[in-house]
């Protein structure tokens, strides 16, 4: 199957997924209890003021009309205007997106950098103490809730030991090169929180696929050819074992994005996740719709890229 056809098919699927995400988000937000006018204005407002607020944001129109208008705006690349901030949603999200990219990117890199060696270590010592330890830690990591880990880390390293900052992305009054160091210090705890909860899945996947690869004929052949066990493990078995792990990275991006919302809230990290938290408290439908669309698009694009890369890596997939 030609690559163009593969990419085209994935693109259509991605667009359908996005439309579904947009529609569900639109409807779910309208099902939320609460009154956007009350979130915007004083509870002392008159009925006239309330009607005026709802009308100014088109919330007085029937749901179908609101949906149609929203979709119309979207296809023109317009995410709307924030109810509470009176500025374009793209501007609201644009200010926060770099921080979320930094946090999720750092966490993803950390997961891969830690996950591969740990998975290899466990697989190469199958049944040993290290293997069992990695499995226990991996399963535990998968089972815990991101905010629980975040609060524990914050309490231990931020409050008790005082080694790392307890919130924000950097301190005020820090400039130039020192600012980068400060950003890194503030990034440690949020990134570690996210990494710890997703590391388990990655380690366990690498471990199981590597064990599988180590039992394959090409591994036996490599061993029979006299290659060192280290070379067989890292150059032959691991490279093939990494194919499912590549898929997992794409899948985990969804968890990462969801985890970022919670982590940013705990650490007052100024990313899209914290923005979502604040928009929920203000019932700012426009920002919430834009933020969820952005997050859905991130996951969809990541999955699409993963699919395409996987297809390029393994010809059997691209011909299916």
């Amino acid at each position: 199957m030609p690559v163009a056809w593969l990419v085209g098919r994935k693109l259509v699927r991605a667009l359908l997924t996005l439309w579904f995400a947009v529609t569900v988000t639109f409807l779910l937000l309208r099902l939320l209890p609460g009154d956007p006018a009350l979130a915007l204005a004083s509870p002392n407002m008159t009925a006239e003021t309330r009607a005026s607020i709802l009308a100014s944001y088109g919330l007085d129109k029937p749901l179908v009309v609101q949906y149609g208008l929203y979709l119309g705006q979207l296809v023109q690349g317009n995410l709307g205007t924030s109810f509470t901030q009176s500025i374009p949603v793209t501007q609201v999200l644009g200010a926060r997106l770099p921080w979320t990219l930094l946090l999720t990117g750092a966490s993803l890199v950390l997961t891969v950098v830690l996950g591969i060696p740990l998975g290899v270590l466990a697989a190469s010592r199958r049944g040993g103490v290290l293997d069992r330890l990695v499995q226990v830690v991996g399963v535990t990591g998968q089972s815990v809730f991101v905010p629980s880990v975040a609060v524990l880390l914050l309490f231990a390293f931020g409050v008790r030991l005082g080694w790392l900052p307890i919130g924000g992305a950097y301190d005020t009054g820090v400039y130039g090169v020192a600012w980068y160091g400060d950003v890194a210090r503030h990034l440690v705890l949020p990134a570690l929180s996210l990494t710890l909860v997703q590391l388990g899945a990655y380690v366990l996947t690498v471990r199981s696929t590597l064990i599988d690869a180590l039992g394959q004929d090409y591994t036996t052949l490599a061993q029979a050819n006299g290659l060192s066990p280290r070379r067989v493990l890292w150059k032959h078995a691991l490279r093939n074992a990494l194919l499912p792990a590549t898929t997992l990275i794409g899948l985990q991006l969804g968890f990462l994005v969801g985890g970022a919302v919670l982590t940013e809230t705990v650490f007052a990290y100024p990313g899209v996740g914290r923005g979502i938290y604040e928009a929920v408290t203000q019932l700012d439908y426009a920002v919430l719709q834009g933020a969820f669309l952005l997050l859905a698009a991130t996951v969809v694009v990541a999955n699409m890229v993963t699919d395409v890369v996987y297809g390029l890596l393994d010809p059997r997939v691209s011909t299916r």
Binding site: L32, P33, G34, D35, L38, A39, P43, T281
Partner: peptide, 10 residues
């Protein structure tokens, strides 16, 4: 939750 509380109050 505050928004629900305000809406129910109103």
């Amino acid at each position: 939750e505050r928004n629900t509380y305000l809406a129910k109050t109103a």
